[in-house]
């Protein structure tokens, strides 16, 4: 990045301005990429994630069989050249089901966390900006929501609303709203004290403009990093709910649901459980690696290290 621009105006002033300039500094994004680069583990996570996403998108091309096709002749076959990951109790190809299963995991996690980010982020921003009793009341409400174990809350909501894709997304996002509200509120409290917010008000900007145009970009990086880490949690919760039997209804392949089905034949056919288990693990691990690297890159406390 180049030094400060050459000033116009009279000579003495120009000289003084030049002298007054700080040392050239790298911009925010470049620094972030630099720190991200320094951490090879976050690249590993990103690579794993990309592979899984591609597998989900191109599942119809990659899968050797239809994931729903049952075959009485091929029940509980161990892994072989024909069925790389074996077959389940209905003779369905485990590999094909694992590939398709990635779709539900990704859709639920991305939709739920996207929703939680928007809802929680807005609550945190508005609550922090407004302050006072409104803020206290909102944060108390978030505390109440957080005092339910998230898996239990998700369980209850899905069970009562019915195990459908939409309800699953709503339930998981609801459990993730409080942390996003908190993570967005903390920097909002700091940013709203800065003079540029006051300047915006003096210039006649609306509160909405100040919150979403001026404060939001200053809060965004924290929320996004948190989002990556919570994607991992959402994948885990979705799989857990499916395992309990409250996921997307069969025969749609989900990783958690596959492990639930595998449970009955765990003595004879452990492969039915092992492969979807490894798939869940790989996706959650990839998201955690990525989120961890991003957090290290954005955490000012770790920057000095």
């Amino acid at each position: 990045m180049s030094a400060a621009p050459a000033p116009t105006g009279n000579g003495a002033e120009a000289a003084a301005i030049a002298e007054d300039s700080p040392a050239p500094r790298r911009g925010g994004l470049a620094r972030l990429v630099g720190l991200f680069n320094a951490n090879w583990t976050s690249w590993a996570g990103l690579a794993m994630l990309v592979v899984i996403v591609l597998m989900a998108i191109f599942a119809p091309l990659l899968a050797p069989y239809d994931p729903l096709d049952q075959s009485i002749l091929n029940r509980l076959k161990p892994p072989s050249a024909d069925f790389l990951m074996g077959t389940d109790a209905f003779g369905r190809d485990v590999l094909s089901r694992v590939l398709y299963g990635a779709r539900i995991s990704l859709i639920v996690a991305i939709a739920a966390i996207g929703l939680a980010m928007v809802a929680g982020g807005t609550i945190g921003l508005v609550s922090g900006y407004v302050g006072g009793r409104f803020d206290v009341a909102m944060m108390q409400a978030m505390d109440v929501l957080m005092s339910f174990p998230s898996l239990i809350l998700g369980l209850v909501i899905v069970a009562l609303l019915g195990p459908e894709l939409r309800n699953l997304i709503v339930a998981i996002s609801l459990t993730a709203v409080p942390p996003f509200a908190r993570i967005a509120r903390a920097p909002t409290l700091a940013v709203k004290e800065r003079a540029f917010v006051e300047a915006g008000r003096a210039l006649g900007f609306s509160h909405a403009r100040i919150i979403f145009v001026h404060i939001l970009p200053n809060v965004m990086s924290e929320v996004v990093v948190m989002g990556t880490l919570w994607l991992a949690t959402a994948v885990r919760v979705e799989a857990s709910l499916s395992f309990i039997g409250l996921g997307v209804k069969p025969p749609t392949p989900t990783w958690g649901g596959m492990m639930r089905d595998a449970f009955e034949n765990i003595l004879d056919a452990p492969w039915i459980a092992i492969y979807p288990g490894l798939a869940i693990l790989a996706l959650v691990f990839a998201l955690n690696l990525l989120g961890d690297g991003l957090r290290d890159a954005t955490d000012p406390k770790l920057r000095g290290e």
Binding site: M1, A4, I17, D20, G27
Partner: peptide
């Protein structure tokens, strides 16, 4: 086209 951090206090 520049950002505030590229300027000195006086600027």
């Amino acid at each position: 086209d520049r950002y505030p951090h590229e300027f000195s206090g006086g600027q």
